[in-house]
């Protein structure tokens, strides 16, 4: 899925560029287990392949994450969504938006693409049921105008799943 906001997004700042180049090198040396980044010449958008962990509901399944970086990364969080079809999960909407606090209010520059990936895999792995969030249809309908998940006011009240 291409978010329209991505095309109108400002170019990366110098700080963001430097930081992402360092993250890219680190990723190549030490990629998180279960993930593959298809390197392109677009530093501002990473497409990452996720493999469901063995022994979990998502074992043997493969999904794609799309990570878009804002001008002031890492002071601002990247936008992270699953490219549909997104995994069936109580915190993942069918349009690929993910309800995970570290992607929004709890983001910190101390985190990295790699640490985000690990959190997302852990979120998948701890799921006990393959289903969409209860408000999936309403939410997805409201996103029809191409709104970014970063423009959603998320409420996080369950960190068990």
């Amino acid at each position: 899925m291409t978010s329209p906001s991505a095309s109108s997004r400002k170019a990366l700042s110098k700080i963001a560029c430097n930081r992402l180049q360092k993250e890219l090198v680190e990723w190549q040396v030490n990629p998180p287990a279960g993930f593959k980044h298809k390197v392109t010449d677009n530093l501002q958008r990473w497409i990452i392949e996720v493999n469901g962990a063995p022994g979990t509901l998502y074992a043997g399944e493969t999904y794609q994450l799309q990570v878009d970086f804002p001008e002031h990364y890492p002071m601002e969080a990247p936008q992270v969504i699953f490219v549909p079809p997104a995994p069936l999960h109580p915190h993942i909407y069918s349009n690929g938006h993910i309800c995970l606090d570290i992607l929004y209010d709890s983001w910190s520059p101390a985190m990295t693409v790699s640490s985000i990936c690990i959190s997302i895999l852990s979120m998948l792995s701890s799921s006990t049921v393959k289903q969409r969030p209860a408000d999936n249809d309403r939410y997805v309908k409201n996103c029809k105008n191409g709104r970014s998940p970063k423009e959603t006011r998320w409420w996080f009240h369950d960190d068990k799943v």
Partner: peptide, 14 residues
């Protein structure tokens, strides 16, 4: 979790 669009119901907090 829920997004705050309005009437969001989640099983645990139904």
């Amino acid at each position: 979790m829920q997004n705050h669009d309005g009437d969001v119901v989640e099983s645990k907090t139904e």
